[in-house]
């Protein structure tokens, strides 16, 4: 009697080939992007418009989330504090938590949803309605018209939004902690300075910058690779958001390991 055998090498091989194809296509897109930088007359005005759109458009949600994140950190700090810990430590804890982790990561995750989904859906729709093909037939580079403005706008605006999130989170934490612990402004400021390293601010911006590259490049790639109509646009949008979020968490761990230890 012969038993049907399942060759495990096939699905593994398919997965490896699929991953290599993604890497190849992504590399080609990045090469196009670099080549397109020469056409600054095309991408510069589009970058300014795009930067304004994503910067101003994302501000309310960033302020809201950073404000609540700072406040919740402060309230939980109050809950965990026992009598033996000096009160000024609350200042250190809130500032370091917001600047090193909550500010950049929450900003990244929110913008992966807001900007990443938008880029993937816009470019995906343009792909399936042949607008990207139309650009090519007009002898124009889709990279300089569509990808570079989006990537550059993200690279400029996401670190700026990260800084704004950090400031908002710290201020809301400062206000909130005084509702649950008898921390004075002097205590809070002393604690904030006590564990503060000037590199902390730089690290936060580096994370914002790294997340910006990851969100914009991944979402543009997914948008460009869209196939098969409305269903394809949906798949690309979901794929862009999920992949960006996973990459943000991976980068978060990697950067902590590389830059803080």
């Amino acid at each position: 009697m012969t038993a049907a055998t399942y060759d495990i090498r096939r699905p593994i091989g398919r997965a490896v080939l699929g991953a290599l194809a993604h890497v190849g296509r992504l590399s080609l897109m990045i090469a196009e992007l670099v080549r397109g930088l020469a056409e600054w007359r095309v991408w510069l005005p589009l970058t300014i418009t795009e930067g304004w759109n994503i910067g101003v458009g994302s501000l309310p949600i960033i302020l809201l989330v950073a404000g609540f994140a700072g406040a919740v950190t402060a309230l939980q700090t109050g809950y965990q504090f026992s009598g033996n810990i000096p009160l000024y430590v609350a200042g250190s804890l809130i500032v370091e938590s917001v600047v090193l982790e909550l500010g950049p990561v929450l900003t990244g995750l929110i913008l992966a949803g807001r900007i990443g989904a938008r880029y993937a859906a816009e470019l995906g729709t343009m792909r399936v309605t042949e607008q990207i093909d139309a650009l090519e037939t007009l002898g124009r580079s889709p990279a300089s018209h569509l990808v570079i403005p989006r990537v550059l706008a993200g690279i400029i605006m996401i670190p700026v939004l990260t800084i704004i999130a950090n400031i908002t989170g710290v201020i809301s934490g400062w206000v909130a902690v005084q509702q649950v612990l008898p921390v004075t402004n002097t205590d809070f400021a002393y604690g904030a300075r006590f564990f503060w390293h000037p590199f902390d601010a730089t690290y936060s911006v580096i994370k914002g910058f790294a997340f910006a590259i990851c969100i914009t490049v991944i979402s543009c790639y997914y948008g460009f690779s869209t196939e098969q109509g409305a269903e394809g646009v949906g798949k690309s949008t979901t794929g862009a958001v999920v992949s960006s979020c996973v990459m943000i968490l991976l980068l978060d761990t990697l950067l902590a390991r590389l830059l803080l230890n």
């Binding site: 343009m126 309605t129 042949e130 607008q131 093909d133 139309a134 650009l135």
Partner: peptide, 8 residues
């Protein structure tokens, strides 16, 4: 293009 492919 079939559906115009205009930039909307």
């Amino acid at each position: 293009f079939q559906n115009g492919a205009l930039f909307d």
